[in-house]
């Protein structure tokens, strides 16, 4: 993953810049570095603004021009956790954790054997199966929403977190199958056979040959499935009510209140995003692997 400098010109600055760089490489490199910093700051600015606003009082957060140096307070967070409204965000947060974690576990339980049958000991026409999984991901969620709603109504599963768990599992399963297949394809099959001939036990084979390749794949898959489940709004909005409401649904109901609410909303948005932000920062390389369905390692 090493990269050398000077290989990547910006399309906008082709000829003159390219000629100048050959004579004065350090300076143009520095300018491009500064441009990168500038763009990075521009992109992260809304998030920093959200953080700052969440730490301001409602009055200080609703001024024009913005009061950047206003005194900091945790009032917004206290309001989010129900200081005056009495509505606790904990049940929705807990529902989100339940739905995301359990659906991710289920996805792995389905996806790993399936990926095995598509890579290490492939079935015939395994590419067709793989593309069938991907095609289900392209089917618009909204086209299946009504039957699922009607089914849930008849089966008494409306406002039940288990319904969300099943739906999130189906939503993420195609991605997980693709990812796990690409990781399992890296397991050296010859080494498995050699290990079997040498009389290595199953546990040892798994630990020494399979695990080093597959565990990072499982981590990347889990991260992506967790993020997509945690973020999901449409299903949760239509299929849950007061009991099984998830954190994103709770967020959408947050601005109906009267008066100033900006600090409170920023605090809420930040708390709900925090698990994803932490997980994403901690596993940046896994994020790339996951987003490209395992095509990029």
């Amino acid at each position: 993953m090493t990269s050398i400098t000077d290989t990547a010109p910006v399309p906008a600055s082709r000829t003159t810049e390219g000629a100048a760089r050959r004579t004065r490489p350090p300076r143009s490199g520095m300018i491009l570095g500064m441009v990168a910093w500038l763009i990075g700051i521009l992109f992260v600015l809304p998030v920093l603004w959200m953080l700052l606003t969440s730490l301001h009082s409602e009055a200080a957060s609703a001024t024009n021009p913005p009061s950047i140096a206003a005194p900091l307070t945790l009032q917004g967070y206290r309001e989010f956790f129900g200081a005056s409204s009495g509505a606790s965000p904990w049940p929705p947060l807990l529902n989100s954790v339940t739905a995301s974690v359990l659906s991710t576990v289920l996805v792995l339980l389905f996806a790993i054997p399936a990926a095995y049958a598509l890579s290490i000991r492939p079935v015939r026409k395994w590419t067709d199966v793989l593309f069938f999984f991907l095609s289900t991901k392209m089917l618009p969620v909204v086209a299946g929403l009504l039957p699922i709603y009607l089914f849930a109504q008849v089966a008494g599963l409306l406002d039940n977190v288990w319904l969300l768990i099943v739906l999130y599992t189906s939503m993420n399963l195609p991605i997980a199958v693709w990812m796990m297949r690409s990781f399992l394809a890296e397991v050296p099959v010859e080494m498995l056979e050699a290990a079997a001939m040498d009389g290595a036990g199953l546990v040892r084979t798994l630990r020494e040959i399979v695990a080093p390749v597959v565990l990072p794949g499982i981590a990347a898959t889990s991260l992506i499935c967790f993020i997509f489940s945690w973020n999901e709004l449409l299903f949760a909005r239509v299929l849950t009510g007061t009991v099984a409401q998830t954190a994103p649904v709770f967020l959408t109901g947050f601005v109906t209140s009267q008066g100033l609410f900006l600090a409170k909303v920023c605090a809420a948005a930040l708390v709900v995003s925090l698990p994803v932000i932490i997980a994403g920062f901690a596993a940046q390389d896994k994020l790339v692997q996951g987003l490209s369905l395992g095509a990029v390692k």
Binding site: S3, I4, T5, D6, T7, A8, P9, V10, P11, G29, M30, L32, G33, V35, A36, W37, I39, G40, I41, F43, V44, P46, V47, M50, I227, W230, N231, L233, A247, P248, L251, T252, A268, A269, L270, V272, S273, V276, I277, G280, F281, Q284, L287
Partner: peptide, 27 residues
């Protein structure tokens, strides 16, 4: 293309760039 070059604080800029994607869409 900018991030593929070596410059001071490249990792920090990359992390800053990723942040918007990690904010929950509704948020």
């Amino acid at each position: 293309l900018l991030l593929d070059r070596k410059f001071i604080g490249r990792g920090a800029v990359r992390t800053m760039m990723i942040t918007p994607f990690l904010v929950v869409p509704v948020a």
